[in-house]
């Protein structure tokens, strides 16, 4: 046990010209606040973790592109003071692919939701993972279509009530991380919003990773899904994440199951594979003798 295993790095306020402490307001379009998310929505917690990771990685806001799809998660991009793109339902990864290919100098982050990414956009996810373009995909999984009023999603747990499963959901759901990994994503991780610092670090690892990184955020829809299923108040829902999660500090420990799917949290897979754009460019130059 040494200090380096401590994942948390908050910087002190600048005294000697060093970097400023993370102030989320520096990264927000303040005119738009308060944001439109419901009280207790986990997406806000996740967005904070993301911006914190961006801050600690010293990513210039001008060089940051956030591409989102449709749904509650899709609206998050608008709140960030960066180059932001709120695209069509399910397609942010495809937009991001074009953007990244056109502008490899930009840091391209996709914010998507479980419906956006796994249902209507499922095809784009698997091919983004296969292609391994240097994009970080943050998928907020709250098990429900919140924006449209709470319909069943590809990750809704069994027996949960939604507006389209009035008798309880009987469809099996996706393990999004296993899907991404199977499709070839070179970085896959999952974290809960409760473990904000671990989530921030996971996102940071994903952002640093050269290639396609997929981070699933276990987020809570408290107002719609929580109420419909009697999952308790916002704090109770956030706290309930703790019951089955053992945060990993060393990056290797096997974690405990979370939710019905027995899912693990932490970095689930990390591997080296040529990044798409650089490999494409290098190959073309080689063939053309440039």
């Amino acid at each position: 046990m040494v200090e380096s295993a401590m994942p948390l790095k908050i910087r002190q306020k600048s005294v000697d010209g060093a970097r400023d402490e993370f102030e989320i307001r520096d990264y927000l379009r303040l005119d738009l606040f308060p944001h439109f998310l419901c009280p207790g929505c986990g997406h806000g917690i996740a967005l904070r973790a993301l911006l914190w990771a961006i801050h600690d990685l010293d990513i210039e806001k001008d060089q940051l592109a956030i591409v989102s799809g449709i749904g509650c998660s899709g609206r998050l991009s608008a709140y960030v003071d960066a180059n932001t793109f709120h695209t069509t339902h399910g397609r942010p990864l495809a937009f991001a692919a074009g953007l990244k290919l056109a502008r490899p100098d930009l840091h391209v982050i996709v914010i998507t939701g479980d419906g956006d990414c796994l249902a209507i956009g499922g095809n784009h996810l698997i091919h983004a993972a296969r292609r391994n373009l240097d994009i970080t995909c943050i998928m907020m999984n709250n098990e429900v279509y919140g924006m449209t009023g709470g319909q069943v999603s590809p990750t809704t747990s069994l027996d949960r009530f939604t507006t389209t499963t009035p008798m309880g959901n009987q469809e099996p759901g996706f393990d999004a991380c296993a899907l991404a990994k199977g499709a070839g994503a070179t970085f896959v991780g999952r974290e809960v919003t409760l473990q904000t610092t671990a989530l921030k670090n996971l996102m940071q690892e994903g952002l640093v990773h050269k290639g396609f990184s997929f981070v699933e955020v276990i987020s809570d829809c408290t107002e719609i899904y929580g109420r419909k299923n009697d999952l308790g108040s916002s704090p109770e829902m956030v706290l309930s994440q703790k019951r089955s999660v053992l945060p990993r500090f060393d990056g290797t420990a096997v974690d405990k199951p979370f939710r019905a799917g027995n899912w693990e949290t932490g970095i689930l897979s990390r591997q080296e594979r040529p990044e798409y754009y650089s490999a494409y460019r290098a190959h073309c130059h080689k063939v053309l003798g440039k």
Binding site: P34, L37, G44, R48, A49, T193, T197, V238
Partner: peptide, 19 residues
């Protein structure tokens, strides 16, 4: 400890710590 800052979904709380 900043737990409130980290977990506030609405970015309401900012914890400033000075020595």
């Amino acid at each position: 400890c900043r737990v409130c800052e980290w977990l506030c979904p609405d970015f309401v709380i900012a914890v400033h710590v000075d020595v």
